[in-house]
């Protein structure tokens, strides 16, 4: 029971992990992109569309990544090159992304004459499989080594991003750009290029989160109204919970995943709470996390100092 619960928590937390990692990469370079929800929506649609027509998981993921990059590119052009307000641009991207996915989603439904459904072959490719040998270990095998391939992908990306941030030269340069673009610029770092690069990669990773939602959580059926459903927003909040560290986001998304599946695992005859309470729970926790973390004061593990402010070299 507990194992099943944790297993489900990991499954539900994975899209959040994608979204959070993507947003961390974006914020670390000094841009607050509130368009995660939109980018996830676009990724969800694109991956489903491609999977529906090609039956290929790799192509579906590439498509999700690509559309995320494209959405982030719009955001980057507006904020980095044209100095548009980051909050407004991000919010607009969310609205745009949601509309984009719903519009083309409706077209796809029309075309298919009913809710489109992914082929059995494809669903098999993304199904949960125990890794040979490792998967046979009791408890641990089920918990850690019996997931669908995207779970491993999410964890691998989060760990790679952490290593990149902390151990590489370009990761250091990128953190400097996020903290103090003026200083980074004076040190000879190309601020614009650095920002573009990481905003785009961050967007791509968010797109993958969308793919997870439509390909796995959706059960292979396209549902036009509730694919992403606020997960993008929770991801943004999780960035703070994870104190801008993708490795910590693994834990964070697990916790949030646990809350979102809690309703199915609390025995109904013991505690009786309306379902709506459980649906609300992740958002309630998000609120608390935001309140608690905003009281914490330290330079490390807090928002990059230059985050949210556009940089123009000649302005002082």
């Amino acid at each position: 029971m507990i194992i099943n619960f944790l297993f489900a928590a990991i499954k539900a937390g994975t899209p959040l992990l994608f979204g959070t990692t993507g947003e961390i990469m974006t914020q670390k370079t000094g841009n607050l992109n509130l368009g995660v929800e939109g980018m996830m929506f676009m990724g969800a649609f694109m991956s489903f569309f491609v999977a529906y027509h090609s039956d290929s998981l790799v192509l579906a993921l590439l498509a999700a990544f690509a559309i995320g990059v494209f959405a982030a590119l719009i955001y980057a052009v507006l904020t980095v090159s044209f100095m548009a307000n980051q909050n407004v641009t991000g919010l607009t991207l969310t609205i745009f992304g949601t509309g984009f996915a719903k519009f083309f989603g409706a077209m796809m439904i029309d075309e298919a004459g009913g809710s489109p459904k992914l082929s059995g072959k494809f669903l098999k490719a993304v199904s949960e499989k125990a890794i040979p040998v490792l998967g046979d270990i009791p408890v641990v095998g089920k918990l850690l080594f019996s997931h669908n391939p995207l779970v491993y992908l999410a964890v691998a990306i989060a760990i790679l991003c952490t290593l990149y941030l902390l151990k590489t030269r370009s990761g250091l340069n990128m953190r400097a750009v996020g903290e103090n673009p003026g200083a980074a610029d004076a040190a000879g770092i190309n601020v614009t290029l650095t920002k573009y690069l990481h905003i785009l990669v961050g967007g791509g990773i968010c797109g993958l989160g969308g793919a997870y939602l439509s390909l796995i959580n959706g059960g292979g059926i396209w549902n036009n109204s509730s694919v992403v459903n606020g997960q993008g927003w929770i991801s943004v909040a999780l960035v703070i919970f994870a104190s801008w560290n993708p490795a910590k986001a693994i834990i964070g998304s697990l916790v949030f995943g646990a809350f979102s599946v809690l309703q199915f695992y609390v025995p109904k005859n013991i505690i009786e709470v309306p379902n709506a309470f459980y649906v609300m729970l992740p958002f309630l926790i998000t609120t608390f996390v935001l309140i608690i973390t905003s009281m914490r004061k330290s330079k490390e593990g807090s928002q990059p100092a230059g985050c949210g402010v556009n940089y123009f070299r000649e302005e002082r």
Partner: peptide, 16 residues
């Protein structure tokens, strides 16, 4: 023009 959150060494090699 220093990045406050980074160490001295990180600031020194920054962008080199």
């Amino acid at each position: 023009k220093l990045v406050e959150a980074l160490s001295a060494a990180d600031n020194i090699i920054l962008g080199a």
